[in-house]
């Protein structure tokens, strides 16, 4: 048989290819973020808040637990109390810095755990489909029926107060929405041709999920969970405010808001400080997740 050769016309498919730089999806996202100054700014704010909580022992000018009957409810800038004092005469700034540790932990940890658990459940439900999907998603729907704050209160109430129980209840609250987002994203990707092609090579389910699904659903899941952080901080504060999360005398933004509430007519500015901190933190997280969302919205 004669030599089979490819026609030269065919061998030059390379011609006319646009000379583009090769960038992966995540490099592309990074490239976009680099020019999104607003998101960068709020990202820096988030970092600042996180660092101030981490280094609270170094930054705090006073002992957050040390009360003083003489210095109760002093205004901002009174003597050494930069942000004034609370109803027991404790330094607000120090309590804010220490309080950030608990508040932020309660804001971030439940979302992290829920992303892992809910994301996994959602990906499994979305990829396997059928009865497994039915089972997982119907259970999730039951949780959906309650407003999240009510659910958190109910679970915390049943399990009793405390930081750990508070975080557990918040985790349970965030699993259903994250599971739903992961399920939706996965079931969309699952039916695409490249997943079919992977199945056609004889690849096992786990390998397909790891190699082909994960990279394509991680984006939407991360965006959603980052937007949940601000919700979680608010809910955690809410729980503490109701006395279900952190117990006194631990410093916590939500709890501080609760105890300072009584002094609102005496020194309203000082009372507002924990609230303002919660507001700023959640806005920062929210805007960062918005920025992330638009950076990840690259149509490839």
């Amino acid at each position: 048989m004669a030599n089979i050769t490819m026609s030269p016309a065919d061998a030059v498919a390379v011609q006319g290819a646009p000379a583009v730089r090769v960038r992966s999806y995540w490099q592309n996202v990074g490239y976009r973020l680099r020019y999104d100054y607003l998101t960068l700014f709020f990202g820096a704010m988030v970092m600042l808040i996180l660092l101030s909580a981490v280094f609270a022992p170094l930054l705090a000018p006073m002992d957050p637990y040390e009360s003083s009957l003489i210095n109760r409810l002093k205004p901002i800038g009174y003597k050494d109390f930069i942000l004034g004092t609370d109803e027991l005469g404790r330094d607000i700034l120090s309590r804010m810095l220490y309080g950030g540790r608990i508040s932020l932990t309660m804001g971030i940890m439940p979302v992290l755990v829920a992303t892992l658990v809910g994301g996994t459940l959602g990906i499994v439900a979305g990829f396997v489909g059928g009865r497994t999907n039915m089972l997982i998603m119907r259970v999730v729907d039951v949780f959906y029926a309650f407003p999240s704050i009510l659910l958190a209160v109910a679970i915390s109430g049943a399990m009793g107060g405390g930081v750990v129980n508070g975080m557990l209840s918040l985790t349970l609250v965030f699993i259903p929405p994250l599971c739903r987002v992961a399920e939706t994203a996965t079931s969309q990707v699952r039916n695409l041709d490249f997943v079919e092609a992977a199945r056609a090579t004889g690849a096992k389910t786990f390998s397909i999920i790891r190699v082909h699904i994960l990279g394509n659903v991680l984006g939407p899941i991360l965006v959603y969970s980052s937007s949940m952080v601000s919700v979680s901080i608010l809910l955690a504060s809410g729980l503490s405010f109701l006395g279900l999360g952190v117990t006194p005398p631990e410093p916590d933004w939500g709890l501080m808001l609760n105890t300072l509430r009584q002094a609102i007519y005496i020194n309203p500015v000082v009372c507002a400080i924990p609230g303002v901190a919660i507001l700023i933190t959640s806005i920062c997280f929210n805007l960062v997740s918005d920025g992330l969302r638009s950076a990840m919205d690259v149509r490839l």
Partner: peptide, 22 residues
Amino acid sequence: EAIPGSPPDLRAMPPGCAFAPR
């Protein structure tokens, strides 16, 4: 008898006839 290659990148059009490379 296929036309070789692919159409030019409209972001960087070649000078002269756009079909010349093919």
